[in-house]
Design a binder for these strands. Structure first.
Lengths: 148, 148
DNA sequence: TAGCGAGTTCAAGTTCGCTTGAAGTCGCCT
DNA sequence: AGGCGACTTCAAGCGAACTTGAACTCGCTA
């Protein structure tokens, strides 16, 4: 019946993307998405923003901070057809990062697995708890799970 | 020459664990580690706390929030020989969680890999950006990368 | 025993990723 | 034309994980 809208209000985008309207505005403030305004100053989002939000959420799920997502997204630009080379570079960045994070988690998991039942928190022979500085090097600062 | 100390001050523990003294105190406030006090009210940590801090940092690196770490650690208790069954349960919890997170990251990576060069942020055929609700289901709330 | 680097507490500040609230405006349906 | 739900901005608040600063005390060394 109704024909497919190509512009969405904040509330519509929010609902269809599965996030709160406040989050949509927040993302726009942060330069992650953009909109045009109606004569009455209301936001109107192109349907493409749905995909952009999906990309943002997916990236977040992988633990990538908004600032980094914004960075990649801004390199992609506001235009409709982003340069392929840019997207390739961004993808490489993502993948390298994801691979690092996956490796870390796998190490954790395997170490914990080998720990089961050893009671190692009070004994001395666990290689999770005596990792020879490996872990210390990897996560020194505050909540820096990733990035540079 | 000097014999191995079995108690460490805040600063010593901090340095040897590779974190700031303020972080050490913070962890103690949060019940992640504990100490005895000297007659002059200064903290003295048992060497075992080094391992505990290593464990905390390792867990954090895997993206596990302090509250959860504290939870597991408190179940393990302050005593020297934690019940094996408890440690097994905790390990299972960790491993399940890690496996979930690893799967998520691998999906992300593979999707991005298959995206290289497709320019999909503006085109319509990318399965990263049109994941059929998969991703939306997985990461709906704010920064909830994990937990329950 | 004096000095001073390291320790103490407590309150406030910081970043991230939003949410909430107040005060007011828009736009669509009847 | 009126009504009311959805929109607007701006400021403040929140929880996690710490850091910073002020004001003061300890404890080891010379």
């Amino acid at each position: 019946m109704t024909l497919k809208k190509l512009e969405l209000s904040v509330g519509e985008l929010a609902q269809r993307a599965g996030i709160a309207p406040s989050a949509v505005r927040f993302y726009e403030d942060q330069g992650l998405i953009f909109s045009r305004r109606t004569s009455g100053n209301q936001r109107r989002y192109h349907r493409a923003m749905l995909r952009r939000v999906a990309f943002i959420r997916a990236s977040q799920t992988a633990g990538i901070p908004l600032a980094v997502i914004a960075d990649v997204l801004s390199e992609l630009g506001d235009h409709e057809s982003p340069p392929k080379s840019m997207w390739e570079a961004a993808s490489k960045r993502w993948i390298d990062d994801l691979n690092n994070r996956i490796a870390l988690l796998e190490n954790m998991r395997d170490m914990i697995g080998s720990c089961v039942g050893c009671g190692c928190l009070s004994l001395g022979e666990c290689h999770l708890l005596n990792p020879g500085d490996e872990m210390n090097k990897l996560g020194p600062g505050p909540r820096r799970l990733m990035r540079d």
